[in-house]
């Protein structure tokens, strides 16, 4: 700071001057990093508190609605204060947890079957033209059938037990997984295939070391869509014919005129869908760190 403007050049600096300037720069750097970190912390606290506020506002509006609107029937539109007691009962009796467990297990089993069959079918139809042309009309035709339309058939074929639900979920989740895998595999940039060939990779090696990872972003999109569809199909199957599960809980509460239980079932589905999706995203960034590292 005490330097005159003429002594800007490094050659004019004495050792003491340059040392004191270095010290000054270090202090500024530390200050800068401290500010940056504080700023980020403030930002994430702000985000979290607004998230929580959003939930509180939603609950408050829900609570207020039957009080503010006089013709609103509390039995048809129970506020959170009514629902929370029922929720405690359902948790304490173990009924809610058991239904969640049963439903999640169905989704998991169906989804695993769909993932195996869907990626396999996508890989084969995406790489082998013969199989692609052979399967095109049938697969695309079947894809257009809403899985819900098959609920009665599935009940007839597989009965009211687990197999009918798992089969329906697998069916519904199969198509987005297959279609996205197929697209990803078909559209692997030719330059990557040429690189693999010129580096000496054989057909099978190219399939597993290049085509599969290159198509992975598409496959992940397919898996994510598949999860969403699996939850929809789950509820459809459980509403129609089941003796347990979240969908069954909703269906029976309808017959018992228990809207509060119905609300709990519906909220549980929303919550589960959200948690599963978050888990999926977390798993993705953990398993495939390169995927988020820019393009």
């Amino acid at each position: 700071m005490s330097q005159s403007p003429q002594s800007n050049g490094a050659s004019a600096d004495t050792a003491a001057q340059s040392e004191s300037r270095d010290a000054h720069l270090r202090v500024r750097e530390e200050q800068f990093l401290r500010d940056l970190k504080a700023d980020r912390r403030r930002q994430s606290i702000r985000q979290l508190s607004l998230n929580i506020l959003g939930i509180v506002l939603f609950l408050a509006a829900w609570e207020a609605t039957p009080h503010v609107i006089p013709w609103m029937n509390r039995l048809l539109f129970p506020p959170p204060s009514d629902v929370v007691g029922t929720l405690r009962e359902l948790i304490e009796s173990g009924e809610l947890i058991e239904n969640i467990r049963v439903s999640l297990l169905r989704v998991l089993n169906g989804f695993i079957i769909a993932t195996i069959l869907g990626t396999l079918a996508g890989l084969l139809t995406g790489r082998l033209q013969l199989l692609q042309f052979l399967s095109d009309p049938i697969l695309h035709g079947m894809r257009s059938i809403p899985a819900i339309a098959l609920v009665p058939l599935s009940l007839l074929w597989f009965g009211i037990g687990e197999p009918s639900k798992v089969a329906l979920i697998a069916w519904g989740a199969f198509f987005p997984i297959w279609l996205n895998t197929y697209t990803g595999v078909r559209d692997v940039p030719p330059v990557l295939l040429r690189s693999a060939m010129s580096l000496g990779a054989g057909r099978v090696q190219t399939m597993f070391l290049v085509i599969l990872p290159a198509a992975l972003p598409f496959i992940l999109v397919g898996l994510r869509q598949g999860i969403g569809i699996a939850l929809i199909v789950l509820v459809a199957a459980e509403l129609a014919g089941a003796s347990s599960g979240i969908g069954y809980m909703i269906a029976t509460s309808h017959q018992l005129f228990r809207v509060d239980i119905m609300f709990i079932g519906i909220a549980t589905l929303g919550f589960l869908g959200y948690v599963v999706d978050r888990l999926f995203t977390l798993l993705q960034s953990y398993l495939f760190p390169w995927y988020s590292s820019g393009k």
Binding site: R194, S195, M197, L199
Partner: peptide, 29 residues
């Protein structure tokens, strides 16, 4: 074949492999 090395214009690296793993690729196969 690996007796003719090829360098393309761009985007030919395997984005799921690190620099080291990309370089090692032909030895790995």
């Amino acid at each position: 074949g690996p007796d003719r090395g090829v360098v393309f214009q761009e985007y030919a690296l395997f984005s799921w492999l690190t620099s080291r793993e990309n370089i090692e690729f032909s030895l790995r196969v």
